[in-house]
C-alpha cells in the first residue's frame, strides 16, 4: 500500500504543479490587463443599472477595491474614490 500511496502523491504533485502553472499564467495576464487600464477612462457597470465613468488607477491584490479618479456620479464629480468590487458587475475600457 505504501507504493500506491507514493504513486498517488506523485500524481497529486504533478497536478498541483500544472495547476500552479495555469494560475501564474492567468494572474500575469490579469495584472497586465490592469496595467493597461491605468490612467484610462473606464466605465463601471454596477448593480441597479448604475453606470459610472472614472479614470482607472489601481486595485488591491485581492481585487476588493478599485482606486479611481474623477468619478462621475449622478450628484457630481468625485476627485478621488474607492469603488468596492462587490458593487461592480463589470467594467470596460478601450485600448
Amino acid at each position: 500500500t505504501s507504493l500506491s500511496t507514493s504513486a498517488a502523491s506523485a500524481a497529486d504533485a504533478d497536478e498541483l504543479q500544472s495547476e500552479q502553472q495555469a494560475r501564474s499564467l492567468l494572474r500575469e495576464g490579469f495584472l497586465r490587463c490592469l496595467l493597461s487600464a491605468a490612467n484610462k477612462k473606464v466605465q463601471f457597470h454596477m448593480y441597479e443599472k448604475v453606470k459610472v465613468e472614472a479614470t482607472f488607477g489601481a486595485c488591491d491584490i485581492d481585487v476588493l477595491n478599485f482606486q479611481v479618479s474623477d468619478l462621475h456620479t449622478p450628484i457630481g464629480v468625485q476627485k478621488e474614490a474607492l469603488i468596492r468590487s462587490q458593487d461592480v458587475i463589470s467594467f470596460n475600457f478601450d485600448i
Binding site: 493597461s36 468590487s85 458587475i89 463589470s90 467594467f91 475600457f93
Partner: peptide
Amino acid sequence: GGVLVQVVMGHA
C-alpha cells in the same frame, strides 16, 4: 480597429 476590453467580476 479599436479594441474594447471588458472585465466581468467573478462574483457576478
